[in-house]
Write a protein that binds this DNA or RNA. Structure first.
Lengths: 239, 239
DNA sequence: AGAATACTGTCAAACTGGCGACAGTTCGGG
DNA sequence: CCCGAACTGTCGCCAGTTTGACAGTATTCT
């Protein structure tokens, strides 16, 4: 299975000397499951790189519902936006399991920006990547059906968080409820749509796991859904 | 009425010499209503600053529905993301009226980035601003009711595109249909919600215009909706 | 092994928003 | 001043979603 390059890991794309300089300026910190690296509204003075474990970036609606915007894997960086503009955090970042993170303080971040143009460039590129990702989410949320969004999301989850069991079968370790929180839908609706995907022979449902038994078909659907938008673009272009 | 600083105009925040250097490297271009500065999928080689007129940033869903992500005013800049990462355009930018734009080519953009650290810094700040804005939209889209989203959107439109008539009354020059495209809702539903807002005494509806006759009340609602999220954040913080 | 917990599967009732239809209103140009 | 184009106001029907309820199954803890 081809995996997406860690879209949030930009330290690793830097030349070795810069990486070492970064590492020497970081401290490490242990966080327990449920602990927050930061909360919405906090004043930012650090950014983080996940070493082991997992964290999620989430928001809460007025009535307490949780929306998971992203889950991060080891290597991913998070929290640099606040260091750049100094404004309060817009989301919560919470550990989903006991984790170890590298912590880079604002003063060191600023030093790196000033000293290494490559670092600045990586930061800009990362901001662009996140911006494109956020735009994509917006477009999907307003323009696609839940069924399509679920398909897209499962396919991406498979690439970023897919796990192989002993038999080599690919699955995602996630409950239907959690999936619902990512898509902004209820557990029941997610269940219904998953059942539909099962009818199509794409997935197999287990306790706390979703097996992707036909990734090729899902890849095709993925391309079809995203490709359709391009075609529409061309259509609108020519009219 | 206090107005939001042009969140997309970052040339104006630069020191005078840099501004002049930029201007000397730009050409001007005239675009007619309906013309595109660029289309989704295009390869980027320019960025733009609107001098006079208006442009909208929009996407089209598979079935041809249009979603307006933003409308820009004179001074606003658009299209720098593509110059940074070189990837295809994700949205369309179309003139809503006959307009005049400054055009900055990639080579000149790169030169400015290399030569003026202030310019780089403004670019980074702008990317952050847009990122926060996109995150906010995502959170709103999934967590808030249409009624709340409409209220927020009207309030923001009032600040960014509000116009005063001869009598000094504040209004937005926009059709209900266009509003629907921004919110991803139908004209009929928007009309129903606007009626509800009229009942509350917040707005007054006219042909092609929406008068904001009680901006204070809307401001309160704005704060309440956004403040509630903060409270929720605090609540989750303490549990 | 037994109990508590977490997750899945399903249903009916209530709600929300989309869509087609149509009448009425406002505006601008000939 | 009249006509057509653009916009608003409303209605009824329909599809999709949420919500609450409840039963059943898998997993973990003790």
């Amino acid at each position: 299975m081809k995996t997406i390059p860690h879209m949030h890991d930009y330290f690793s794309e830097l030349p070795e000397p810069v990486r070492q300089e970064i590492e020497s300026r970081c401290r490490q910190r242990k966080v327990c499951k449920g602990d927050a690296l930061y909360r919405q509204g906090d004043s930012p003075d650090e950014m983080y790189q996940l070493i082991t474990g997992g964290v999620k970036l989430c928001n809460y609606s007025v009535d307490g519902r949780e929306f998971v915007a992203a889950e991060f894997r080891p290597g991913d960086c998070v929290g640099e936006m606040g260091l750049i503009d100094g404004l309060p955090r817009v989301s919560h970042v919470v550990a989903t399991t006991d984790s170890l993170v590298r912590v880079l303080r604002k003063a060191d971040f600023d030093y790196l920006v000033e000293t290494y143009p490559e670092f600045s460039r990586q930061v800009m590129l990362t901001l662009c990547r996140r911006l494109r990702w956020a735009y994509g989410l917006n477009a999907e949320a307003s323009g696609l059906s839940l069924h399509q969004r679920l398909t897209l999301h499962l396919y991406r989850l498979a690439q970023s968080h897919g796990i192989r069991d002993e038999a080599g079968a690919l699955y995602i370790g996630i409950s239907q409820e959690e999936l619902g929180r990512m898509l902004g839908a209820s557990r029941q609706t997610v269940n219904k749509e998953l059942k539909a995907l099962m009818e199509e022979g794409c997935v197999d449902l287990r306790y706390g796991k979703i097996y992707l038994i036909n990734l090729e078909a899902m890849c095709e659907q993925y391309e079809a859904i995203l490709g359709a938008e391009q075609i529409t673009a061309a259509y609108n272009h020519n009219r």
